[in-house]
């Protein structure tokens, strides 16, 4: 290697300076602002007053609600997504069903926000298609629940199930047909194969996907914000309140404390995810 190349090597990292500067300013700086702001007051003096906000009744409730919502939608999404993935994987691996389902799931897993809220209001809202159709044949179904936690669980399932399909399909592909044949040769029934081979084998992958779905739902904001315009039943909506409402004196950094709390919850979920992922990689490749 030439000498010029070596000296160039010492300063070569400068070539990545624009990228590092940009990421430092718009990704790391905001993160530091949140983390530091959670422990300082408006005048940048250290304080624990913001953290005390995390102990307030409404904020605690919002975190409990958020965790319940994320857990419920993750479990529903994971179970139904696994079922859909099974339906797909038992078909022809190169067939149209599998290709269409993965393409559609790829699109729907990214779908969310105002449009998704609109779609559900148009279906089961007060003037929704399904509501009016059911009204025509029987008693009118209630619609208020759509704008509360149960509604959010249903609406979140709309992107959680497709995400589960995408995450879980590779794991199902890793289950070799030979294992089923081996179980049958030994006289095992379908149930025994399911209970003693498939389930233990897929459990780590399933738990990993569950955690990913949990983090996904916990971080979601736009759909809930469009559906629930008033109040703050979940943690992301508490941040909206903190950012948009008239700031109460001395609580200007309360939003940062709530944001820090959210980072911690997501970090726990993602750490567990990484641990589980390492375990499942051992069996399925």
């Amino acid at each position: 290697m030439s000498r010029g190349r070596v000296t160039g090597g010492r300063l070569a990292w400068l070539g990545s300076l624009p990228f590092l500067a940009y990421v430092g300013l718009f990704l790391l700086a905001p993160t530091v602002i949140v983390a530091a702001g959670a422990f300082t007051d408006v005048a940048n003096r250290p304080t624990l007053a913001n953290i005390r906000v995390l102990g307030e009744r409404t904020v605690v409730d919002s975190f409990v609600n958020s965790i319940a919502l994320s857990a419920a939608s993750a479990v529903i999404g994971a179970v139904l997504g696994a079922v859909l993935a099974w339906v797909v994987v038992t078909g022809n691996p190169d067939g149209a069903l599998r290709r269409t389902t993965t393409a559609v799931c790829g699109v729907l897993a990214q779908f969310g926000g105002v449009t998704l809220a609109f779609a559900f209001i148009a279906s089961i809202g007060n003037q929704g298609l399904v509501t009016l159709a059911l009204d025509a044949v029987g008693p009118r179904p209630g619609t208020g629940w759509l704008y509360e936690l149960p509604g959010l669980v249903l609406v979140y399932s709309y992107f959680q199930i497709p995400l589960m399909v995408l995450v879980f399909l590779p794991a199902l592909d890793g289950v070799r047909p030979q294992w089923r044949e081996a179980a049958e040769t030994l006289g095992g029934s379908s149930w025994q194969y399911f209970r003693h081979v498939a389930v233990p084998l897929l459990t780590p992958a399933f738990l990993g996907a569950l955690l990913l779905l949990f983090a996904n739902a916990f971080a979601a904001y736009a759909t809930a914000a469009a559906l629930i315009s008033q109040g703050a039943v979940i943690a992301p909506l508490q941040i909206r309140t903190a950012l948009t409402s008239e700031v109460i004196l001395g609580q200007a950094n309360a939003g940062k404390a709530i944001a820090l709390g959210m980072i911690l919850v997501v970090a726990v979920a993602m750490t567990l995810y990484a641990l589980v992922q390492r375990r499942s990689a051992r069996w399925l490749r």
Partner: peptide
């Protein structure tokens, strides 16, 4: 030129997946 930075760049680029947008907004 600087393959030793590749892990750092990857980490930085994937970081927004773990920090929710709603949290970044507070910092922005």
């Amino acid at each position: 030129r600087v393959p030793q930075l590749s892990r750092l760049v990857e980490f930085l680029c994937l970081l927004p997946l773990t920090i929710p947008a709603i949290v970044l907004v507070v910092g922005w």
